[in-house]
Design a protein around this nucleic acid. Structure first.
Lengths: 217, 217
DNA sequence: ATCCCCCTTAGCCAAAAGTCTAATATGGGT
DNA sequence: ACCCATATTAGACTTTTGGCTAAGGGGGAT
């Protein structure tokens, strides 16, 4: 055991990140821990590290719309397993996380011992779920179409879409990403085509359908 | 007892509307029941009936964003009590409904006897909540600012905002409402000013913050 | 009668959004 | 070496959006 793993903790709460890191540090002494506080910094972490073994992902992060980050990760980095960790723990939330390619679901209420046991399984390529769960009743599939469309976006397009979701103008996005406004427009057109919408407002509406606990789904 | 009441049932599920109506018809034989299946038809019902005694409101309706309808009703028809009825029944959802001016909260799992008893109280001007509830832990107040701003919208402005939320163009909205595009633009400018946003995308984003079970709040 | 609010509309203008073509650059894979 | 996906940009263009001014009509309240 105890290989040299590279594990990312993506959660917007600093206290939770360090608690998780500390709790698991004993069980995995040779592991390199990386932290990301937003979808943005998570993307940077992915860009800068080629050998990642696991992403521990919170569903609520600034600049991320619920499951959208999970969908994007699974489609563009299929080799890296993602385990979702969340304060929500109803079966629907869990079923959706699994449906979108998570290799496990860890409620934040999980004890630290269970957590270490869960990581063991997951790092071996298994899946892990809280005990005593019946997901058979949960029928997802509704928005499968949009999820597939979202998965077609390139990383940069995905980033631009997220910034649409923050209400930014093309000009502001171009400034933030340090590219020209023409580039943003080009991305926008590509995004709309892939998502099958006509303008940015419809794109944002579609994106918000992936919010955690959205009653629509 | 048994006055002549006018009660509106606003729920997008036809089966549920008739079930409710049938169940309560016995307890309130002289009551006129009105049904609305969307925020739109609810608005029409309000326009056409001056003497309404109660609105039974589901939080999930087509063209309505969670609490936005409740906020709008309470600000523009303060004399008409609104009781929220919902499949969600966590304390946060309930606390928010009460915070936004609901005079009660009825989970859809409530028995028909309890339901009749609840209506009795509510029609007397009292409030009603499921037994054994502790809302003291729930702290809302976060988006009070936006709720106040939303309450400033006139009925027509509110309707236009909802259609922004459906991703419609000014041209389409004008056609649907049978007014000119100039009118929609005038409403749009007023909406943005009242909501303190700069464009329609930001308005839609703000509106979606009022979604039921939105983790942001 | 008067005031005020809401709804309506037109016309003008500026800004932003969105489409299209065409071109360059880079990196990975075959 | 070559192909391909991605990212970048410019330029020209159309459409949509949004703000501003001005103005008329209707209804309710004082």
């Amino acid at each position: 055991m105890s290989e040299r793993f590279n594990i990312v903790i993506a959660d917007d709460h600093p206290l939770f990140r360090s608690a998780l890191r500390q709790a698991l540090g004993n069980a995995y002494p040779d592991t390199t821990w990386l932290e990301a506080e937003s979808a943005d910094t998570l993307q940077q972490t992915l860009d800068n590290n080629s050998q990642l073994d696991l992403i521990i992902l919170d569903l609520q992060m600034p600049g991320s719309h619920g499951y959208s980050t999970l969908i994007h990760l699974r489609s563009h980095y299929p080799a890296i397993p993602v385990v979702v960790i969340s304060a929500h723990e109803d079966t629907k939330t869990i079923a959706k996380a699994m449906h979108y390619g998570s290799c496990g679901f860890i409620p934040k209420s999980t004890s630290m011992e269970d957590l270490a046991a869960a990581l063991d399984l997951i790092l071996q390529g298994e899946t892990w779920l809280p005990a005593g769960l019946d997901l058979s009743k949960e029928d997802i599939s509704e928005d499968g179409d949009f999820a597939n469309r979202l998965a077609e976006l390139t990383p940069q397009q995905y980033k631009v879409l997220q910034m649409f979701g923050e209400g930014l103008l093309n000009k502001q996005i171009a400034y933030d990403l340090e590219v020209s406004e023409a580039t943003i427009k080009a991305h926008a057109t590509a995004i709309f085509r892939k998502l099958n919408v006509r303008n940015r407002t419809q794109a944002v509406i579609a994106l918000s359908q992936l919010e955690v606990n959205n009653p629509v789904l």
